[in-house]
């Protein structure tokens, strides 16, 4: 069974008289270790899909089963607990907490888990090293460059060793050079640490680092690359 399994998921929004259906009865499976990129025109529902997988929004119908848990059935509080343990979220703009240092920002998600302070410290250090910021731990977000901030944001997303990491245009507000560094980082995290990722992007080049590309338009996936792409799930990596 795939790590992530969306079945028959529909999401609609009503704006005044008009009803939009960014996600229309879609199915999606993501296997453990996959790196899936999600592209599509603006307003096609990419962020909406990401938010459903993250449990920060709810579908109108359908089920979203992640590692055996149907997260559409969880209460808001239980969803928070579930996210703390299973989800890493990389924002387009880093969204670091400005009053906390880089270290404290990365440490924050670990505080929500039952761990000893040694376990925490080790995980934070690992995550900081993984993003190449081991020497910037005591800086505040405003003292970091855009790329560094995004690295801290990525460290924060992976520090709890989540089941899946989602990213909404993680390079969307970076210059080309920095964007390439972040792409490399994300690719390494997937290939070397085996982190399962779902990433929204507008950029073909960015999408190409993924093992499988999805294209969303008018509520449906185009091309139908909806089955898992890693070897052990039978598919061949497309990336």
């Amino acid at each position: 069974m795939a790590l992530v399994e969306l079945s028959n998921v529909t999401k609609q929004f009503t704006k005044g008289e008009q009803t939009i259906t960014p996600l229309d009865q879609i199915d999606l499976q993501i296997a453990e270790g996959e790196f899936v990129s999600l592209m599509g025109p603006s307003g096609s529902g990419k962020s909406t899909l990401l938010n459903l997988v993250s449990g920060i929004d709810r579908p109108d119908s359908g089920s979203i089963v992640i590692d055996g848990t149907d997260i559409t059935q969880l209460s808001r509080g239980k969803l928070a607990d579930w996210r703390a343990e299973n989800l890493g979220y990389i924002f387009q703009t880093h969204n670091l907490i400005p009053v906390l240092t880089a270290y404290e920002n990365v440490e924050l998600p670990t505080l929500l888990l039952k761990q000893t302070s040694q376990q925490r410290a080790r995980r934070v250090q690992l995550a900081m090293n993984a993003v190449g910021l081991g020497d910037r731990v005591n800086h505040y977000p405003r003292q970091l460059s855009g790329g560094q901030e995004q690295r801290v944001g990525i460290a924060r997303a992976i520090v709890t060793h989540p089941k899946i990491v989602v990213a909404d245009e993680p390079t969307g507000s970076l210059d080309l050079k920095t964007s390439r560094q972040i792409q490399k980082l994300l690719q390494d995290l997937n290939q070397q640490l085996g982190i399962t990722m779902l990433m929204v992007t507008h950029d073909n080049e960015v999408a190409s680092i993924a093992t499988r590309q999805l294209l969303l338009n008018q509520g449906k996936f185009i091309d139908g690359h909806t089955s898992p792409s890693v070897r052990r799930e039978g598919g061949e990596a497309l990336g």
Partner: peptide, 16 residues
């Protein structure tokens, strides 16, 4: 508000 949205995305409960 956005900070609270971020905190909850990270897994802070509404009660927290």
């Amino acid at each position: 508000m956005k900070e609270y949205a971020v905190l909850q995305t990270l897994g802070v409960r509404p009660s927290g």
